[in-house]
Amino acid sequence: MTDEKSFVEIRHAQKAFGKLEVLKDISLSVDKGQIVGIIGSSGSGKSTLLRAINDLDPLTGGEVWLDGVEVNQKLPHRQYEKHINQMRQQVGMVFQHFNLFPHMTARENVTMAPMLLKGLSKDEANTLAEEQLDNVGMLERIDYYPSQLSGGQKQRVAIARALAMKPKLMLFDEATSALDPELVEEVNQVMRKLAEQHMTMIIVTHEMDFAASVCDRVLFMDQGVVVEEGPPSMLFKNPTQPRTREFLRKHLENAK
């Protein structure tokens, strides 16, 4: 194996809960600026793989590298904590259920981490929050609490919160799955805008059309393995694997 590493490099990722193998030897590389979609039925391991990238779900085997640094390297607990906190600052993550901090306004959700971790002054952080919330079209609601926002608005604030840390990589874990259908597009638009700005993104999604339109590459996962991967034009139109075809066929039926 050469040691030339891509921007994001996952090598032989394995994850088991007891005897249940969720990830079976998965390798994946993502170049800077690339947008990779991961599709698959629930339980296929796609979220687990995504969450392994910032060590939210630690792997039981294999390596994750980001920009030449090994994310899940073996270190004594204290050192590892320091290292992983540093790594996570560089990786933005967006969750299915938003996970906004309910006791903070949109502004505070965005300013909290940059002030605490990067030592931004209150003024600097406020400017940053205005900038980031404006970017996702949420400037008008800057002083609202999450409970006063719709799902789509919450998710846009959550994206702004992640972007405020100026991450090198953005991970989306079914960012629109919990949204009412009419609110999906406003979040997709924000993600498209990020794509245009060449943000490196890994997107776990159930939305084939969206994946097809923004991703450079799509992976189909099933039972802990990558069954097939390729550009969306190929994977969606001419899947070579029976399991991929089956999945896409079922998905199409459900959509109808």
């Binding site: 910032n54 939210l56 904590e81 906190n85 540093q86 996570r88 600052q89 990786v91 933005g92 993550m93 969750f95 259920h97 996970n99 906004l100 901090f101 909290m112 981490a113 605490l116 971790l117 959550a158 919160r161 992640a162 840390m165």
Partner: peptide, 20 residues
Amino acid sequence: GQREAARTLGLSHWQAMYKI
């Protein structure tokens, strides 16, 4: 999810505890 969101931003265990 609250802890996860905090840790994902880079907060330490105690920072997440104290702030979130």
